[in-house]
Design a protein around this nucleic acid. Structure first.
Lengths: 118, 118
DNA sequence: CTTGGGTGTAAGAAGAATCTGACATGTGAC
DNA sequence: GTCACATGTCAGATTCTTCTTACACCCAAG
């Protein structure tokens, strides 16, 4: 799991745009110290909850964090998030390799199939 | 040179936002195959020259490419670009470590000194 | 002097990302 | 019922990024 992965162009692009944001970097940093649920995390890092929700969605879409909706002892629904054990190397060769598999201008929700534009 | 570096938060952020763009990824990929000058590169990858100029500026500001203004045999000024041998690992720990050294809201050009806003 | 190829840059439009505020929902405790 | 605390989502404003177009300059060749 801690091996250096070589994601596709679109995956790497999603990872980079997800991490290329100071708030999201700090979110990942906070989750590295342990899992947490949304409202508490929002309080701790001083961010509005809807905003944190959006950032977590972006991080989860990139596969950098994983969230699971659990029920606390009292029955309250709480969404816990934790970091995914991602690891990818950022080198010119890795970027060049990934750039070759870029689908250019459609980042749709077709990561299960392979519906090319052409 | 090919060791895994651990940049500061602001540096990593600049690297990630620089690479988190399909055009810039393709520019890095094109420059991996050899140095090139701006107008020719713009022709090859099918991009307007001012736009490529902006992207190259962004990549150079992040330290991912280096440009040098040279004079051709005929005396024409040509700006050559080549990739810098960057290498950094993208792991939760690296992100957490970098997030600790983020200056939050000022991304000014004060990477030489330490001129804080306040 | 005009043409062709190189450089850089600035203004403004278009589009995407970010952020706030308000709303709707559910559950347990008082 | 009302409060506190959790969830999610939406509309709109704002800000940032991206991109085009147009301009400026320099040098060599015809």
């Amino acid at each position: 799991m801690s091996a250096i992965e070589t994601p596709t162009g679109d995956e790497l692009l999603k990872i980079l745009t997800a991490l290329g944001n100071p708030h999201r970097m700090r979110i990942v940093a906070a989750l590295t110290q342990g899992r947490n649920y949304v409202s508490r995390l929002a309080r701790e890092i001083g961010m509005s909850r809807p905003l944190l929700h959006m950032h977590l969605q972006r991080l989860e879409a990139a596969g950098l964090v994983v969230g699971s909706l659990e029920l606390s002892d009292s029955g309250k629904a709480m969404k816990f998030f934790e970091v995914a054990p991602f690891a990818c190397a950022l080198t010119p060769q890795a970027v060049a390799e990934a750039a070759g598999t870029l689908t250019d201008q459609d980042q749709d929700e077709n990561q299960h199939g392979k519906a090319r534009t052409q």
